[in-house]
Amino acid sequence: MKKFWILLSAITFAIGLTACAAEKEEAQPEKTETEKAAEPAANPKSVMYKFYMSLVSSINEADADLNAYEGADEPTAEDKAAASESAAAVAAKVEGLEVPAELKDQTADLEAALTDIAESYQLKAEELKKDAPALEAADEKFAQGEEKIGAAFESLEMNKPSLAKEL
């Protein structure tokens, strides 16, 4: 019987808390445009970090077959075809990324970096369709993009990341 009363008390308590929380949410008025404008702007370092991590995760979502090809001792023709498709998918994902508005001072560097990185993966996709692919030009293009990302980080007094190590 004690267990029943304890359980009943816990349920009643939970319902009471839920009701109080709902009343508190209803009591808060909607913010006006002036109040929204008066709120502090987002921390650019935080926005930059989130943008960078979204770039890393976008690439990592699609580059598994490419990484497997590049890491294989003797890749097969199927591995090479899958790597080409993987590289094209990465290029499309990177092209779809947008630089956040809060990073207006770094937009030029970041957009140029995204372009270079997307081009590097597109070059890899095209090279992997050849009998003897040469990926050096694609790697150089990637390094250029990585440098531009580093410049954007340094403009915010942040350490340069190594995108290649993240992938």
Rank of each mutant, 00 (worst) to 15 (best):
F4M: 13
I6A: 01
I11Q: 07
I11C: 12
I11E: 04
F13E: 07
F13H: 13
I15L: 08
A22Y: 14
A22E: 13
E23L: 15
E25T: 08
A27Q: 08
K31R: 12
K31W: 00
A37Y: 06
A38P: 14
P40V: 04
A41F: 06
A41P: 02
N43I: 04
N43K: 13
P44K: 12
Y49M: 05
K50A: 15
F51H: 11
F51E: 03
M53P: 03
V56Q: 15
S57A: 05
I59W: 01
L66D: 04
A68C: 12
P75A: 10
T76K: 11
A77D: 12
A82K: 12
A83I: 14
S86K: 08
A87I: 12
A89I: 01
V90Y: 00
V94T: 01
E102V: 01
T107K: 05
T107W: 00
A108V: 08
L110C: 01
E119A: 14
Y121N: 02
L123V: 04
L128A: 12
K129P: 03
D131V: 08
A132C: 07
A134E: 11
A137Y: 09
A138P: 02
D139I: 12
F142G: 08
G145R: 05
G150E: 09
E154S: 15
E157K: 07
M158C: 11
M158D: 13
P161E: 03
S162R: 14
L163V: 08
L167S: 04
